[in-house]
Amino acid sequence: MADSTFPVVARPDVTTAVITPQYAGGVERQRDLVRADDRVRHSGLVSVSWFASTDGESVLTYAQWADEPVGETGVRYRLYRSLARTDEARVPGCLVTAVFDVDGPERQRTFVDSLIAALPDEDGHPGAISAHFHLSTDGTRVLNYTEWTTEQAHLEATESGNHDELYEIFAGTPGVRPLRGLRYHLLDSWST
């Protein structure tokens, strides 16, 4: 069923998320890539969401599987921890991802736990909706999937310096190397 809403990241029937970035090289090409995605809908595939980077350069596909992914070429992740209010009613308008190269499964968990421990006890920026930390199944990546009300809200949070302490953790943790993070808007989605 097509629904064009952000995926429910902490969906209980999902065991694996396959996350695939793809270079588009322009806004028109982003839509073309989504239209051309002839993904076979296997019985274990429960949702697919396509996001366009705000810089027009790429498309991110976020596919959720209840069973072992079939025919997927992206990085396989498992949700490790989420920060989200159970009474949250705001609708996400912007996805922000941050990806980190890490030295193994132990480093993955330690890094995420350190980030969460460094977050303020209060709600943080008013535009922040949720954060979902994914660990790649091969132990080499951490992906932080964060939902924001708008792109502008995330820009304001970045410019305010609220992320400075977290950046020090990114840059100062042995065995962790930050890779590129991007802002995205939802292009299309479907779910069962």
Rank of each mutant, 00 (worst) to 15 (best):
S4H: 14
S4R: 15
P7L: 04
P7F: 10
A10L: 02
A10F: 03
R11F: 01
P12Q: 00
P12F: 01
D13H: 12
V14H: 10
A17Q: 00
A17G: 06
A17S: 10
I19L: 11
I19W: 09
T20Y: 11
P21L: 07
P21Y: 05
Y23A: 13
A24W: 08
A24C: 10
G25C: 06
V27Y: 15
E28R: 13
E28K: 15
R29I: 12
Q30R: 14
Q30N: 07
R31T: 14
L33M: 12
L33T: 07
A36M: 06
R39L: 09
V40E: 08
V40G: 03
H42W: 14
S43V: 13
L45D: 00
L45Q: 03
V46S: 15
V46P: 12
S47K: 11
S49G: 10
W50T: 04
W50M: 02
W50Y: 14
A52Q: 01
A52C: 08
G56L: 01
G56Q: 11
S58Q: 13
T61E: 08
T61P: 14
Y62S: 03
Y62E: 05
A63K: 08
A63T: 02
W65G: 12
W65C: 05
A66K: 13
A66T: 10
D67L: 13
P69A: 02
V70H: 14
G71L: 00
T73M: 00
G74W: 01
G74H: 05
V75M: 03
R76M: 08
Y77M: 06
Y77K: 12
Y77V: 01
R78Y: 05
R78A: 10
R78D: 08
Y80D: 05
R81H: 13
T86F: 01
T86C: 07
D87I: 00
E88K: 03
E88L: 06
A89D: 05
V91K: 12
P92N: 02
P92A: 10
G93C: 13
G93K: 10
C94P: 10
L95A: 09
L95S: 14
V96P: 09
T97H: 04
V99Q: 03
V99M: 00
F100C: 05
D101F: 02
V102P: 13
P105V: 08
P105W: 01
P105K: 07
P105Y: 06
E106R: 09
R109Q: 02
T110W: 06
T110K: 10
F111N: 11
V112S: 04
D113W: 11
D113H: 09
S114D: 09
I116E: 07
I116V: 15
A117Y: 08
A118I: 02
D121F: 15
E122Y: 12
H125D: 04
H125S: 05
P126Q: 07
G127V: 00
G127C: 02
A128T: 11
